[in-house]
Design a protein around this nucleic acid. Sequence first.
DNA 1: GCCCCGGATGTAACCGGTTACATTTTCCCG
DNA 2: CGGGAAAATGTAACCGGTTACATCCGGGGC
Lengths: 335, 335
Amino acid sequence: MVTIKDVARQADVSVATVSRVFSGANVVREETSKRIRDVAARLRYTPHVGARSLTTSKTNTLGVLLPDLYGEFFSEIIRGIDAAARRSGYHLLVSSSHSDSREVASAMRSMRGRVDGLVLMSPDLDAKALVATLPEGHPLILLNASVKQRGVASVRIGNSRGAKAMVQHLLEHGHSRIAIISGAKHNIDSEQRRNGYRAALAEAGISPDSRLEVEGDFTEDSGYEAVRKMLANRSCRPTAIFAANDAMAIGALSALREAGARVPDDFAVAGFDDIPIARHMTPPLSSVHVPIADLGERATENLIAAVSNPKHRARHEILRTALVIRESCGPPGHA
Amino acid sequence: MVTIKDVARQADVSVATVSRVFSGANVVREETSKRIRDVAARLRYTPHVGARSLTTSKTNTLGVLLPDLYGEFFSEIIRGIDAAARRSGYHLLVSSSHSDSREVASAMRSMRGRVDGLVLMSPDLDAKALVATLPEGHPLILLNASVKQRGVASVRIGNSRGAKAMVQHLLEHGHSRIAIISGAKHNIDSEQRRNGYRAALAEAGISPDSRLEVEGDFTEDSGYEAVRKMLANRSCRPTAIFAANDAMAIGALSALREAGARVPDDFAVAGFDDIPIARHMTPPLSSVHVPIADLGERATENLIAAVSNPKHRARHEILRTALVIRESCGPPGHA
DNA sequence: GCCCCGGATGTAACCGGTTACATTTTCCCG
DNA sequence: CGGGAAAATGTAACCGGTTACATCCGGGGC
């Protein structure tokens, strides 16, 4: 591999001068600079970023830790993160599929010295314990994390409020038997969305019915299974189904179609996240819109701010959701 | 930041010994080792991976360059890459949204010294020119690249064959006016799929009709627009629509639904890729199954093989597709 | 008691850059 | 043409590790 020394030797200058040419310090005589560039081009020299970051202690890289990569939600998140990062000239070191906190801790550790900051999405985990293992002063931002921590910036979704609004919408349309397909246990998004659901019912004076709360795991399959379970239980059928994310709502739609049930005539269906595909379902899926890519962007922008300005104060941001009513929950007064 | 020196000082040993403890050389006396580990734990010391990789010239990281991150296709690709990488203990440096080749070249350059190898997906670009700018001996694998290059490993999809099979299937079902919504111009996947389409028609003795070839860009919106265009042109309506990917097929389904057309009764629709959501469309979308995650995995496995064994021979792999017939293209003899 | 050997640890060069400071060159002006 | 400041370049320490080689030490064999 060709190094700065090779270039220096062939251009008959010291390594310092070569370094100055490539690190943008504008102090090298034009003539010399050109000669060095020529030699470098001929030798196909590229500065070794790793070595550079050792002295500058800047890597221009952000670490991204995600629980999973499956489905449009994560794809949008990364897309947002990537957009913000590239805008500021940062690279992304991505690592996913971290289920338990030991794994996450080890992934965090292995990023030491490789990244200037960390975006950590851990809706399932106890972020507090994780953060404790981190060396001080390491810029970090939490995405949809379960705990709001002093001094640790975070961005999250207005889950509860969004879910409540959707359930209220269903109530206004005359539904009173509204089922929920929740996400995985201990997942903060799932819990908050379920809370919103319960709050809406409570305010409407409807007492909770545990038979209407089915647990899924945010996958299409689990939404599908949840509906099959509901349909099997003839004694207690909902008229509306609120899924804690779109993937499960989509699985639910499939199960209903297979069972010959019509949506929204027989069942109203609503999801959460408003992933891009939601509008293309049949019928188009009503959902709680989450600015997913924005979520990634905001987190990343905050992180970059913290990275470039050490006294940047940690903020907690909550992104607003918006009801997107399409056809899957039917016209008013229909239930 | 606490370094190896701090640990050495506090544990009253030399940095070499500390280094040996953390790099797994099993030559340090148990007693000493324990003392060092204790000090390190107390100080929250983590070895600086960047510094380590400077001497070992191993980064345990792979670079991933993608043209985009939007949609389930890329999400699955990354998932596959990530799975294979994590299995072998590699990290991923991801960079996307590279439209023109200057950008890609610069991204490649900026990865020098940061990665042990590169996965490059560039269906739009002239990979040849890009590869030429790369320093020799840099492990690289091309994903769906346009040119088959000597000495450069690649993994790709059996596009032409898959498309041909799908169009033949439509032909067998009695369709003769089969439209195609192709992908972006100069995109290799799009071109190969279109070639497969044309080949099937040619073999069936059907002369090509340029009015039945509409150009899209692989997005849902472009599929939607393409169908609107087709429907507007009353003089020349197809009975079947083959979209060069599922996203466009999904957009097509939306347009048809809005126009009040029934699928598969009025139009048969088929896609390509078989992204996970395809089976959940209404009607479930027939598609050419591509093992997307596998594509990423195979590429990554090959790359890792090349990284760990410099005399690994570059292979060109072509992944087989499989017809997945669901309901969107209807029962036989229907057209 | 001496020597040799092997295991444990230390010393210092090195990886590929950056940069403070020293030194040389350039150039302007009297 | 000499002097001195400014500009250009060189020297060498340093970033945080790894590792070849040197050193030290204890124990076994004679």
